[in-house]
Design a binder for these strands. Structure first.
Lengths: 229, 229
DNA sequence: CTGTTCACGATTGTCAGACAATCTGACAAC
DNA sequence: GTTGTCAGATTGTCTGACAATCGTGAACAG
C-alpha cells in the first residue's frame, strides 16, 4: 500500500449516504407499508402524497414506479397506484418462488464460501437473541426473514439475493396486512436451528426437506389468516 | 354463473392494448439495445434522447428508470444512465442465476401442468423450424432464449418467470454486444432436443446434468468472446 | 515545460405549474 | 332498466426553470 492509500484507509469507516430524494421517498413508503400504516388497497394519490412528503409530483412518481417494480404496489392505468393486495394466489406464488431460491442456497452449502456460511450462523444467532430478549414484533419479523435471505446468499449470486429481497418484501407486506391488529410472532427458532444443525452435519437432503416443510407451513399459515381477514 | 356474467364472458377474447408512452419508449430502447444499435457503455443523454423520441424529459426519465431496474442500463449519480457494460463477473452471476431457475423448472417437469410442458415442446419446435429456415440472427437468438424461458415456466410461477425474463434480457444484451459485428448463431438444436427427450423419458436427473453442461458451455463461450472484445 | 487551480459549459436532479384524457359517480332521458 | 350526459377528481404528459455536480480546457505558478 502506498502511504497515500493507507492514509485514505483511515477513513474506511466513513461513508457518505449518497441517497437521492427519490430513494428516500421510496424508503419512507416501504417503511409505512411494512409497519402496516398503509392498509392494502389504499390508493396512493400523487398530489396528496407529494405534498405530504414535501416533494414534487415527478419525484414521487419515480418513487411509486420503484414500489410497483418491487411488487409492493400495483398500478392500474389512469387509476393510479395503490398498496398491493396480497391474495392467496400471489402468496402461493411467492412461496414457491422463495422455496426455489432458498433451496438452491441450501443445496450449495458444501461449496459455499465460508463467509456466506458464517452469515447464516450470524443471522440465526441474531434472531435467537432477539427472541430471548422479547424484541418488538417488527424486529423479530425482520430478523426471521434475514435468516431466509442469508440462505439465498449461500449461492453467492447477487442477482438471486436481490430477487429474494423483492420476494421477501412482498411477504413482509402480506405479514404486515395480516398482523395489522394482532401482532403475534411465534418463535420459530427451533426449526431454523434444526436446519442449521443438519447443514453443519452435511446432511443436505435432510436440510432441504426441513426447509420445504418450514416454508409449506408458513405458506399455509399466511393463507389461512388471509382468508379470514 | 349469473346470466349477466355469462354475457360478459362472451367478450373474453377481446383485449385492447393499453400502452402508455413510457412503456413504448422503454420498449423502443430495449429494442435498440438488443439489436446492438447502442453500444455498451453509451451514455443515454436525457435531453437528446427525449427530443429524438419526441417525448418530454420526465417521461423519458421514467423509461430509463425501467431500463435500470431491468439491469439493461446503469445509473451513476449525477452522471446519468448508460447502456450496461457486461463484465465477466456479471455474466457469471447471470449464468448461475438462470441455472438455478431453469434447473428448478426441469426438476418439476413430472408435476408440471400439461400446458407448461406443451409450451416447452412448442418453443423447441419453433426454434428448430427457425434453424431449418435459416432465420435471421435476431430471430434465432430470441427463439433459443424462449426455450430456456419455457423451462422456467414449468415451475408454474409467474414471479420466477418474470425474474428469468429479466435475467435473459441481460444475457441478450451481452450477446448483442459480443456479436455486434460478427453475428454467428450456431445451432444448438441438438442439445435442446436431447434435453427434451430425457424429460419425456422421465430421466430428470440426467436432464438436469445435460442442462448444467449446456449452461456452463454457454457461459464459457460468452466470457471468452467478451474478454477478447 | 509541467503540474495545479479555477472558471465555464454540459448534464443531471428536482421543482412548479399547466393541460388534455380518462375515470367515478350521480342524475336525467328514453 | 339501460343509456346518455355532465361535473369533479385524478392521472399522464408536457413545458420551462433552477441549483448542484461533473468534466474540460485555459490561465497560471513553479
Amino acid at each position: 500500500m502506498h502511504p497515500a492509500a493507507s492514509s485514505t484507509d483511515a477513513f474506511g469507516s466513513l461513508s457518505l449516504e449518497h441517497s437521492s430524494t427519490v430513494d428516500r421517498v421510496a424508503e419512507e413508503l416501504r417503511r409505512a407499508v411494512f409497519e402496516g400504516e398503509l392498509e392494502s388497497g389504499t390508493p396512493l394519490r400523487e398530489v396528496a402524497l407529494a405534498e405530504s412528503l414535501g416533494v414534487s409530483r415527478p419525484t414521487l412518481r419515480e418513487a411509486l414506479a420503484l414500489l410497483v417494480a418491487e411488487g409492493l404496489a400495483t398500478r392500474e392505468p389512469n387509476r393510479g397506484v395503490s398498496v398491493a393486495r396480497p391474495d392467496p394466489d400471489s402468496v402461493r406464488d411467492v412461496s414457491t418462488a422463495r422455496a426455489v431460491l432458498e433451496t438452491a442456497g441450501v443445496r450449495t452449502w458444501p461449496h459455499a464460501s465460508e463467509e456466506a456460511r458464517e452469515a447464516v450462523r450470524r443471522a440465526l444467532g441474531d434472531y435467537e437473541r432477539a427472541v430471548a430478549e422479547h424484541a418488538s414484533y417488527q424486529e423479530l419479523n425482520q430478523r426471521h426473514l434475514a435468516i431466509h435471505l442469508s440462505l439465498v446468499g449461500l449461492t453467492g449470486s447477487p442477482r438471486l439475493v436481490s430477487m429474494a429481497e423483492s420476494i421477501v418484501a412482498e411477504l413482509r407486506l402480506a405479514l404486515a396486512q395480516i398482523d395489522r391488529v394482532r401482532r403475534n410472532a411465534r418463535s420459530q427458532a427451533g426449526s431454523h436451528h434444526h436446519l442449521l444443525d443438519l447443514l453443519e452435519a452435511g446432511e443436505i437432503d435432510a436440510a432441504v426437506d426441513e426447509l420445504g416443510e418450514h416454508l409449506h407451513g408458513a405458506e399455509d399459515a399466511i393463507i389461512e389468516r388471509l382468508d379470514l381477514g
